[in-house]
Design a protein around this nucleic acid. Structure first.
Lengths: 193, 193
DNA sequence: TTAATTTTGTATCAATCATTACAAAAAAGA
DNA sequence: TCTTTTTTGTAATGATTGATACAAAATTAA
């Protein structure tokens, strides 16, 4: 292929940008910060991401959808997916302080974007709904297998996990404390039994 | 008192500003929008709120602390405060669609401010912790009276309500639906029994 | 009436915002 | 080697940001 060789790889830039967007949100993250973090100047940024800041954010958000796909694969291979989901929620408690303060970029975006940019807000909502679907399928299947005795409808239990996720991702900023978080997550996971 | 009479009352300006901050957050709300919403020009805005945008936001946030004080008074007068708290949570489900999209300005601020402005973030965290204290006191007292049989420590149950609050205030943007919200809130309130 | 005081409205400020323009750099293909 | 193509770095762009300067307006006190 002709042309000057690429030095700033698309994927690496997205990951650097994601970190910034995750911490500061869309509005408060400036192009100059993105430029400094990625190392790429405005020229490279706009050449790589023709849609500018918005496209870069979309890619950063979409990266989490791919992470979800990875988790889906792991769940499908497991013969006790419910325990895996519970372990995932509990693992949040032991993450770093910085992770606590960052929360979840998907949940953060839903909160930030509702009255700012409906398109980006809906992109985030879609990811959360996709996650919910995965939970619903898993719970329903495990109910049929008898691994979950609860008669509460699978969609309600799945939405409970989503609500817990959103709740914990705010609580962990108020209490970035392993023990407190573990206690609260355990309490709410008891509903899935 | 000497001087040209005030036409823009402090309280009214705070309420107008609060509405904007609640919807769009701190960063995305501009002074020109605040000026348009309150009707006051830059002159009046900066004369009334010497600290500018930041002070106006602080006042908007602090308004919710006063609302909390009102709720505290109602709870103290009640002989079944737990039912009042549960009714309050359930009442969220039937609010307007716009209210669903707005969520909670305190929770919103915690999410937005962590990496932007620690001071404003901590102001919001303080309000949430104050709310938690109110819940803890109420639950502990009702446990002693035998109105709550659960042996789960009052602080854990109180933090459960805070987590539920944060969770629901994101979920209601994903599902601004009366029935879904009622279902999820009811499920989680069963823990307080 | 006049002076003192405060609020209001408007013009303006420097700084920063996201984005674009464009030439130099660096490669491949002819 | 020369042309073509693409990326990169830098210098602009106009718009908007939060905040300030300041005179006119509107009141009270002297």
């Amino acid at each position: 292929m002709k042309g000057r060789p690429i030095v700033f790889k698309n994927e690496e830039m997205v990951l650097k940008a994601q970190e910034l967007f995750w911490e500061k949100g869309y509005t408060a993250t400036s192009l100059s910060e993105l430029s400094a973090a990625t190392g790429a100047g405005a020229g490279s940024l706009y050449n790589t991401f023709k849609g500018g800041k918005k496209e870069l954010f979309k890619k950063s958000l979409y990266q989490r959808k791919e992470d979800l796909e990875d988790f889906k694969t792991v769940l499908e291979k497991s013969d006790n997916p419910i325990e895996l989901i519970k372990a995932f929620f509990l693992s949040v408690a032991t993450e770093s302080k910085k992770s606590h303060f960052k929360g979840c970029i998907v949940a953060n975006t839903i909160v930030e974007m509702t009255f700012i940019n409906e398109e980006l807000g809906n992109d985030a909502i879609d990811i959360l709904k996709e996650t919910e679907k995965l939970y619903t399928r898993t719970i329903l299947s495990e109910q049929k297998r008898g691994n979950i005795k609860s008669k509460i409808p699978a969609p309600v239990l799945a939405r409970h996990l989503i609500t817990l996720w959103c709740g914990i991702n705010t609580l962990r900023r108020v209490y970035p404390d392993k023990e407190i978080l573990r206690q609260q997550i355990e309490l709410q996971l008891q509903i899935i039994k």
